Simulated scan of single mutants.
Amino acid sequence: MKKNLYRYAALAGLIAAAMLPAGSMIAPAAAQIGGIVHDPRNYAQNILTAARTLEQINNQIKQLQNQATSLVNEARNLQSLPTSTLQELQGQVDRTRGLLAEAQRIAFDVGDTQKAFDARYKGAALSGPQAALVANAEARWNDSVGAFQDAMKVQAGVVTNMGAARQSISTLVTASQSATGALQAAQAGNQLLALQSQQLGDLAAAIAAQGRAEMLDAARAAAAEAEGRERFRRFRKGN
């Protein structure tokens, strides 16, 4: 009961102070109830201090909440992409390289190419004995046929890789769209770039194999023309 009287007295003092004109504000008198002195002005100051303290606490709570949200976002950005197509891409590259390594008669090697041309396409190969001319002509024909067969095998391998590449693209695009952070999105993009590089490698391999076949066929035609001139020269000399 006494506590309620104290509160009513304090409230009455605050109301009375608030109703005074602006120019006639005077220090409120302390109220004495039951032998206990209650100062309304001190009570109001305590309430104001408590309100400010509560506001500071709320601000600190908001800062902690923002920091927690930031940490959660950073954790998401650091999560790795659960999907990887590296093994499939390496397998496709290895298959294409294997097809190129199976090149018949003349490998994709500068030294081997030079040796083959020296032996069958120029110089003594076009001016030797009759049996040697026939053998070299057959060897050049086999080179051309083998090169065209190699080109077709590489092209077939590239077409086969296209099916696997299509599946990889679908997987990576889906993973990119469902990425939860910056790292996952970046990793998906990097894998798509790797897939594009693999496809460019397949295209380069197909072009190289096709070009090799066409160049060998052109070299065969040029060698056959030179051999024909040699045969004609011998024919005339024999007459």
Score class of each variant (00 low, 15 high):
M1F: 11
K2Y: 09
K3T: 12
N4C: 06
L5Q: 09
R7T: 10
A9V: 09
I15C: 10
A17K: 06
G34D: 13
I36R: 06
V37E: 11
V37H: 08
H38E: 15
D39Q: 09
N42K: 15
Y43E: 11
Y43K: 06
Q45P: 02
Q45K: 14
L54M: 15
L54N: 14
Q56A: 12
Q60L: 12
Q60V: 12
Q63L: 15
L64I: 13
T69N: 08
S70W: 06
N73C: 09
E74R: 12
A75Y: 05
L78I: 02
Q79P: 03
L81K: 00
P82H: 11
L89E: 02
G91K: 08
G91S: 12
Q92C: 10
V93F: 02
T96F: 04
R97A: 07
G98V: 01
L99K: 05
E102R: 14
A103D: 01
A107K: 08
T113H: 05
R120P: 03
R120W: 10
K122L: 14
A124H: 05
A132T: 09
N142A: 14
G146C: 08
F148D: 07
Q155F: 04
A156M: 05
V159K: 14
A164C: 05
S168P: 05
V173M: 02
T174C: 04
A175L: 03
G181P: 01
Q198I: 02
Q199I: 04
D202C: 01
M215Y: 08
A219D: 04
A221L: 07
E227L: 05
E230Y: 00
R231C: 00
F235V: 07
